[in-house]
């Protein structure tokens, strides 16, 4: 097996001394798509936040390696520059900063080089087309007054523009209508095909997965991965829910 992109070993983490994640083990290889499912309160968002280095969560044990480097204690921006991305369930509003400027700044931070303006503009336009976003969105203030669907699309837009090695999608499909789910999943497929990056899709519904290729499915319950299987596990959950996995 090639070197894994993400290796989570015995990870324990939580808030204010109380552990939410209890010895989580997870391995994501390059180009693989993993789905993480689990009941409410299982620790899914905690895992996403801990992987991204959100200071709200404290790691109390275990390790995270990414692309061969131990990033357990690394700053969030460092993880992002190493190629990690996390979409937010409810991204905050940033008045006065346009979506366009934000993406440009992020690309600049990642590459350390000035943006090639025409190439960038072309890519932005093409990517917004995939997501059925009107060009005028680029000049709107980041997430200010965005509807739920618009926020999610803006997150996927950022993912596609930044082309990370690993994208963690935290409940990207929640609260979206059928059309919006289809558009978002269109964007995720474009990411799979164009950049060949890995995915960790956190969800508790399965609609977004219908048109996506999935390699592995994990069930997280009580802060532990209690079951790992192939794409067929999604169907099992669809039928039976999480009752089999809850203590």
């Amino acid at each position: 097996m090639t070197q894994p992109l993400l290796q989570v070993t015995d990870l324990c983490a939580g808030i204010d001394g109380g552990n939410i994640l209890n010895h989580v083990n997870l391995t994501v290889g390059p180009g693989e798509t993993h789905v993480l499912m689990g009941p409410n309160g299982a620790g899914k968002s905690t895992l996403a936040g801990t992987l991204m280095g959100n200071p709200v969560y404290q790691v109390t044990g275990g390790a995270i390696t990414f692309d061969g480097a131990d990033i357990t204690g690394a700053a969030t921006a460092e993880r992002a520059r190493a190629g990690m991305f996390c979409s937010f369930q409810n991204p905050p509003e940033v008045p006065g900063l346009t979506l366009n400027e934000f993406i440009k700044n992020a690309i600049r931070a990642k590459t350390g080089k000035p943006i090639k303006i025409f190439k960038y503009a072309g890519e932005l336009k093409a990517t917004m087309d995939i997501l059925a976003m009107d060009e005028s969105y680029a000049e709107r203030e980041l997430n200010v007054g965005f509807s739920g669907g618009e926020k999610k699309k803006a997150e996927i837009l950022q993912m596609l523009m930044l082309a990370p090695k690993l994208a963690i999608l935290d409940e990207t499909d929640s609260g979206l209508d059928v059309d919006a789910v289809r558009t978002v999943s269109e964007g995720v497929r474009a990411y799979q095909n164009q950049s060949g990056g890995s995915l960790l899709i956190i969800t508790h519904s399965t609609r977004i997965l219908e048109s996506l290729h999935v390699d592995y499915t994990h069930i997280l319950a009580d802060g532990k991965i209690v079951k790992t299987g192939g794409p067929e596990l999604v169907d099992v959950i669809n039928e039976r829910g999480f009752v089999d996995f809850e203590g």
């Binding site: 991204m52 959100n54 200071p55 709200v56 700053a75 969030t76 921006a77 993880r79 992002a80 520059r81 991305f85 996390c86 937010f88 991204p91 905050p92 940033v94 008045p95 006065g96 900063l97 934000f102 700044n105 992020a106 931070a109 990642k110 203030e141 980041l142 950022q158 930044l162």
Partner: peptide, 30 residues
């Protein structure tokens, strides 16, 4: 400035100091 907003910007690779400056510049942009 909310910690969440700083974390959000940092999660896109922007260093903390720069993230805060961007938020302040945005505030000042009008």
């Amino acid at each position: 400035i909310s910690d969440e907003t700083v974390f959000y910007l940092m999660s896109r690779g922007i260093p903390e100091e720069e993230a805060r400056a961007m938020i302040v510049s945005g505030f000042a942009s009008p």
